[in-house]
Design a protein around this nucleic acid. Structure first.
Length: 595
DNA sequence: ATTTAGGTAAACAGAA
DNA sequence: ATTCTGTTTACCTAAA
């Protein structure tokens, strides 16, 4: 139990192997604990604050543990396992939270209490329970929205029964709402995907007005039940408050309005929730745009002769410009998004997939493209057809491309001319301006130590020195994973984490709710960054096992990366929201500490 | 403002 | 003599 020992007790070491994270977590917890030391004569309000803090701290700790655990697994576990694992752990966590609350309640009830205080504590307890449930609901909803969890009614049984046994009828009903509504949403939204990560076909059209219509599907689902005598308020439907994470039930619209004004007034918490919701909407819109593009591309593809797609079908939003001709070299302000659906699941996909696969998209000169300078494999493979036919500059560095070419070869070695041929074969773009890019290829071969020239009987071939290639990454990556650093060092500090999270969202256009974007460059880049950080922290010995080296990982790894990163993003999001809660009565622990 | 890294151009040399 | 291959330098630009 995470908080059994009470706030003053040192955290009983997390089981995750990531010392860094664990340390940061411990620090965060300590800081929080300091401000939460209960005094002997606590008021009800103090108790509320205290317990809320405990929940928050525990939840975040738990999330971090969970994330670390997932990271440990993600190289081997299939997505289903991860999803299951995540779901299981979430449920365990919430269950423990509730048990803990009951424990505390009864302890206090037994030791020091007069009836008055008991009732106060019961109130506190109920509030606390409510909050736990809200958190859980919020959490699960978030996951569901991303298709990471497919919650079935029976899967919530443990919790359900648990709560049934000890909460008032109102809470039971609330819990019903919590468990019931999402299921409908889930079923309606992604019943055809069912791959856990595949929402490609299921994304409902995002609302025009993000903040006013956050549950379109749900609304649709409930429309029959909803007596329209209710005023139509975007935040009120089916007798339930639609404020994210609220779901409070109301008999009539008036009481809802009262609730809305009281509980969701303009405060830090509401603001934070609003921001999260904005991000949700933002991502949904982004996803919509992507799917629209994809649809367009599909339609174009199906209606145009498939042989020579000169009017380049949109590369699945990989390249926002198709640049049919006279493309100025290196000036494509491509969006940092990526193809969301593989055009061709090529058989060679396994050949060069590295856990740290790159997928960066963007102008070839963007550092992004090589920052996590990794093999482009999945992207390049998935969009092979596109690149073969579209006269679009591939958003990968020469070094990445060369490496890809070499690693794709059976012997893992190519002559210069073979590299040329690979370029021209794989990319329409490189079928012209030969002088330019060939020079660049040679330049890169010579420049980068990772390319090794090997004398051969028939001349010379080029090979890739993986060690060298990996070696250059740390320095490149060092600046980027600010996110990770923030997580490690500022774990307990909401604003920092939130800022990092939002910055990363903004900068990278993380398709937070687009699990379809399996090939997302930014997702993978971030995943790579995170993974590297984590690996570096937990895995000292096996830093460079060539067997398990990045280059030979099985295909699913890439997806798992995305999954894990999605988890991470959710976790970061929730953590940020949590820490923005105005629960602190005294702000002594608000500042990030220096050490 | 500075540094870093990638892209481009080009000069040059040696080998085929 | 020409072309190919490979190295190196310089410059520009984007990003950090």
């Amino acid at each position: 139990m995470m908080q059994e020992a009470g706030p003053e007790a040192p955290s009983n070491g997390t089981t995750n192997q990531n010392g860094v994270v664990a340390g940061a977590e411990g620090g965060a917890r300590d800081v929080r604990a300091k401000s939460a030391t209960p005094s002997s004569d606590i008021t009800a309000a103090d108790l509320v604050n205290f317990q809320q803090q405990q929940v928050n701290i525990s939840l975040v700790s738990f999330l971090i543990d969970l994330f670390a655990t997932l990271l440990n697994h993600f190289t081997q576990q299939p997505l289903e396992v991860l999803s299951l694992c995540l779901q299981q752990q979430l449920q365990d966590f919430y269950k423990k939270q509730q048990e803990q609350l009951h424990l505390q309640l009864f302890q206090q009830h037994g030791s020091k209490q007069q009836s008055k205080e008991v009732s106060a504590q019961q109130l506190v307890f109920q509030q606390q329970l409510l909050q736990v449930q809200q958190l859980q609901q919020q959490h699960l909803l978030s996951l569901q929205r991303q298709g990471l969890l497919s919650i079935q009614p029976n899967q919530n049984l443990p919790l359900h029964s648990l709560t049934q046994g000890m909460i008032p009828a109102e809470l039971q009903q609330l819990w019903k709402e919590v468990t019931g509504a999402p299921v409908k949403e889930e079923n309606s939204a992604s019943n055809n995907g069912h791959r856990g990560l595949d929402l490609t076909s299921a994304s409902p059209a995002p609302p025009k007005n993000p903040l006013l219509n956050q549950h379109p599907t749900t609304n649709g689902q409930y429309s029959t039940l909803d007596d329209h005598s209710h005023h139509s308020h975007p935040l009120y439907g089916h007798g339930v408050c639609k404020w994210p994470g609220c779901e409070a039930v109301f008999e009539d619209f008036q009481s809802f309005l009262k609730h809305l004004n009281n509980e969701h007034a303009l405060d830090d918490r509401s603001t934070a929730q609003c921001r999260v919701q904005m991000q949700v909407v933002q991502q949904l819109e982004l996803q919509l745009a992507k799917d629209k593009e994809r649809l367009q591309a599909m339609m174009t593809h199906l209606h145009v002769k498939s042989t020579e797609p000169k009017p380049t079908p949109q590369p699945l939003n990989l390249v926002s410009k198709s640049v049919p001709e006279a493309s100025p070299p290196l000036s494509l302000p491509q969006t940092p998004t990526t193809p969301t659906a593989p055009l061709t699941p090529l058989s060679q996909a396994h050949s060069v997939i590295t856990p740290t696969s790159l997928h960066t998209v963007g102008p070839i000169r963007r550092r992004y493209s090589d920052k996590y300078n990794m093999p482009i494999s999945p992207d390049i493979v998935q969009n092979k057809e596109f690149y073969m036919n579209a006269d679009v500059r591939p958003p990968f560095t020469y070094a990445s491309l060369i490496r890809q070419a070499i690693l794709e070869s059976p012997e893992k070695q190519l002559t210069l001319n073979e590299i040329y041929n690979w370029f021209t074969r794989m990319f329409a773009y490189f079928r012209r301006n030969a002088a330019t890019w060939k020079n660049a290829v040679r330049h890169n071969l010579s420049l980068h130590k990772c390319f090794v020239r090997v004398e051969n009987v028939k001349g010379a071939v080029w090979t890739v020195d993986e060690l060298e290639f990996q070696k250059r990454r740390p320095q490149k990556i060092s600046g980027s994973p600010a996110l990770v650093k923030n997580i490690q060092t500022n774990l307990g500090y909401g604003p920092a984490l939130s800022a990092a999270f939002q910055a990363s969202m903004a900068e990278n256009n993380i398709p937070l709710y687009t699990t379809a974007s399996i090939g997302s460059p930014t997702l993978n880049s971030l995943a790579n960054a995170i993974r590297e950080e984590m690996n570096g922290a937990m895995d000292h010995g096996n830093s460079n096992g060539s067997d398990s080296s990045p280059g030979r990982s099985p295909l699913p790894v890439n997806n798992v990366h995305c999954t894990v990163l999605c988890y991470f993003v959710i976790i970061a999001s929730i953590s940020a929201a949590l820490f923005l809660h105005p629960y602190e009565t005294n702000n002594t622990s608000e500042k990030p500490l220096s050490s």
